[in-house]
Design a protein around this nucleic acid. Structure first.
Lengths: 349, 349
DNA sequence: TTTAAAATATGATAATTGTCATGAATTAAA
DNA sequence: TTTAATTCATGACAATTATCATATTTTAAA
C-alpha cells in the first residue's frame, strides 16, 4: 500500500481529503503545517507528498525546497494543492520543481488521478534505476520484447510458407509460438455455414500463436500465410521457460494481448454497425498498413482476403471497390489496388 | 549545450519559439507535427521535449504516449505547450505523465523557467539512477487468481453501482481494476453515429478494467452496471505491485486475457455473418448464462441492453423476440423473458 | 392512486446487402 | 503460345434489416 503525506492547515479539508485517500486505499499521514510536514516527510519517507502552499510556520514552497535538498526525499513525487489559482502562482510552484499543481476546489478524481499518475511515473524512473542498462552479465538476459525477438532469431526454428499455406488449423494441438520475420499472416475462423472471417492480421515482427500457457490446449483459429512468409517458431515449452524467468517480458506480453483485445473490439464495433462501404475502406487501409507500404503504393491482395477481413460477401466487396474506382478514390489495375484519396477512405460514410 | 525538441504545427510560433530558445543558448530541433516529432525524438534523443497538443497526423497526447513506451525516451522531460486551457485539458495532459503544462499565449520567461526547472529535476533523477536503492518486497502470499480475489476482498475499496450507473468512461484515466462481487457489468463502445455495442459482459467473480500495466493510459471503453452491482476496486498501481511479485498470477492473468480474446473473436464471427435471429438467440443464452440462472428461469433485461450485445437495432431485436414468442421458443411476461425451447435457441438458423 | 415518462410492440417503407447467374479478365498449367 | 482454371466484375433479384411512425404497456414519480 502506497504511503501519502498530506500537508494542509485547514482542518476540515485535511480530514476530508485524508478520508478520501484512505477510501482509495492509500496509507495516509497528515501534517497541519509546513514545518511539521517537512519533518514528518523526512521521518516516514512517504511515496508521495500532497501539499498546500499557504500555511503557517513554513509555506509549501519552503517544504518543497527543503525536500529537494535532502538526499532521501529529493525524488519523492510532490503535488501542490492550492487555492492560489493565478497563472504566476502555478508557474512559481512548478518552477520550484513540483510534479503537479492542483487548484482548489478540486474533484476527487482529479486528485486521485494526479497521484496515480505521479506514482506511475516514479515507478518508471525507479524501474530504470534498478535495471541499469549496463548490466551485461547474462547472455540470456531477456528484458523486453526486443530481446525476446532476438532470442527467437537465435534459438528458433525457421519455417517458410508460400502464399495460401496453412500454418496451423483450428483445433490442432498448439505447440509453437511464431514470430514473423517476413510476410503477412491472417488468423481466421469459419462460421457454421463455412464462411470465413479474418480475426487478426499479423505482419513482420509480430508475435502470434499463443494460446494458453497454463494448460494444454488447442488453437482456436486457423492461421494462413497471405503472402510468402518466413516465420520463426519456438516451442511453447521453451517459450514458457523464458517468460517464467523474465517477468518484464510477461508484462510486455500482457500488453500485447491487451492491444490485440482492443483491436478486435474495435473491429467488432465496426462489424456491428458500419456499412459495407466503410468496412471496405477500413480494410483497404488496414492492408496498406500491414503491407508496410506508403498508403499510396499499389497493394496486391485477393478480393477474397479483403472480403474475409471486412466480413462481407466477396461480390459485395468487389462491387464496392468498383464504386470507389468510379469515384476516383482508388485505382484498380488488374489485381492491384492503389489508394488515390486517402482522406476520403479514412472518413468514409 | 542542452538539446531541445520543439514540436509545434504553427510555423510562425514554431520559428519564433525556436529562435527564442536558441538565443537562450539551447540547441533546438523542431518538428511540424506529432508523427515527425515522435520519430525525431527517437532519433536525436533530446534532453527535453516541448510539444503542442492539437496537431495534424498525431496529436501531443499520442507523442507523449509513444515516448513513454520507448525505453530510451521514457524519462525524457516532456512539457505540453497548448492553447487548450481548460482545467480538464490540463488534467488530461498531466495525467498522461507530462512534466509540465504551459498554456498559450505564454511569456518567454515562463517557457524558459519551465525548461530549466525540468532539466534540473531530470539531472537529480539521473544522478540518483547511479545510486540504486535496494528494496525488499515483502512476500505477499498470492499464488493464483483465487488468492488475488481474496486480496481484493481484504484490501480493495468497495463500490456500489445502481442499474445504469457508469463505472468508468472511455477516455478517462484508468486508475482502478475491478472485481465483481455481485451483479453484472457491460463494457461498451460508441461508434461514430452514436450507436453502442457491448463488447464484454462481466459477471460475479470476473476481473475487468485492466488496460495497460506498463504505460499510463486511458480506458478504451465505457463500463456500466446492467443491474445493481457491488465491485471491489484496487488501484492499478497496487495491482501492478502484486503481479510484479507474483509471476504465477501474471500467467493466470494472461490466460484470462486470452480467454477474453477468444470470446470476443467468436462474437466477431457471429457479428459478421449471422442473422438477427441467430444473434438474438445467442444473446438471450449469453444473458441467461451471465445472470447465473438455470437457462429456463425468467431473465429480466432491457431490450436495449440485449440489442447492444447483439449488435442490432432495438426494434429489430424486439421484433425477433416477438417472432420467438409466436413460435413458442420463449415466453414474454412484461419485461421478463423465459426460455421454453433451449435446443431451438442453441441451433437457431 | 394518478400522471408523466420511458420502454415495448408493431406496421410501413426504403435502403442495404447477400445470392445466383453469367461474362470478362487474369493467372497458372500444359 | 494455347488452354483450362481461377478470379474478378456486374446485372438481376430477393431477403434482411434499419428507420420512422405510432400505439400500447410498463415503470417511475408526484
Amino acid at each position: 500500500m502506497k504511503h501519502i503525506l498530506l500537508i494542509e492547515d485547514d482542518v476540515i479539508l485535511r480530514e476530508n481529503t485524508a478520508e478520501l485517500l484512505e477510501l482509495s486505499n492509500y496509507k495516509v499521514s497528515t501534517a497541519p503545517n509546513g514545518k511539521i510536514g517537512l519533518s514528518t516527510a523526512l521521518k516516514i519517507q512517504p511515496d508521495i507528498i500532497v501539499c498546500d502552499i499557504m500555511m503557517p510556520e513554513l509555506d509549501g514552497y519552503g517544504v518543497l525546497q527543503g525536500l529537494s535538498t535532502t538526499e532521501n526525499t529529493k525524488h519523492t513525487p510532490f503535488i501542490f494543492l492550492s487555492a492560489k489559482t493565478e497563472r504566476k502562482d502555478v508557474r512559481k510552484g512548478m518552477d520550484l520543481g513540483a510534479d503537479d499543481y492542483i487548484t482548489k476546489p478540486f474533484e476527487e478524481d482529479e486528485l486521485i488521478s494526479a497521484i496515480e499518475s505521479r506514482l506511475a511515473k516514479a515507478a518508471i524512473l525507479k524501474d530504470n534505476r534498478e535495471n541499469p542498462a549496463t548490466e551485461v552479465e547474462d547472455d540470456l538476459a531477456i528484458r523486453n520484447l526486443n530481446d525476446l525477438k532476438n532470442f527467437f532469431d537465435d534459438n528458433g526454428k525457421t519455417f517458410t510458407f508460400k502464399q495460401g499455406d496453412i500454418i496451423y488449423r483450428e483445433g490442432e494441438h498448439s505447440n509453437y509460438i511464431y514470430l514473423i520475420e517476413k510476410g503477412l499472416v491472417k488468423c481466421h475462423k469459419l462460421d457454421t455455414h463455412g464462411k470465413d472471417l479474418t480475426t487478426a492480421l499479423h505482419k513482420e515482427d509480430d508475435l502470434f500463436g499463443y494460446t494458453s500457457f497454463t494448460e494444454n490446449t488447442t488453437y482456436k483459429e486457423t492461421a494462413a500465410a497471405i503472402k510468402e512468409s518466413v516465420l520463426i517458431g519456438i516451442s511453447k515449452h521453451e517459450f514458457m521457460d523464458i517468460i517464467s524467468s523474465n517477468h518484464k517480458v510477461t508484462l510486455d506480453l500482457i500488453q500485447l494481448l491487451n492491444d490485440d483485445l482492443v483491436n478486435v473490439k474495435d473491429q467488432l464495433l465496426e462489424m456491428a454497425y458500419s456499412s459495407v462501404r466503410r468496412r471496405t475502406a477500413t480494410t483497404i487501409l488496414k492492408f496498406a498498413d500491414k503491407l508496410g507500404n506508403k498508403p499510396t503504393d499499389f497493394i496486391r491482395i485477393s478480393r477474397n482476403d479483403l472480403a474475409s477481413v471486412a466480413g462481407v460477401a466477396t461480390e459485395s466487396l468487389i462491387r464496392t471497390l468498383s464504386r470507389f474506382k468510379d469515384q476516383g478514390i482508388i485505382e484498380i489495375e488488374g489485381r492491384n489496388i492503389k489508394v488515390l484519396d486517402l482522406q476520403q477512405l479514412k472518413n468514409m460514410e
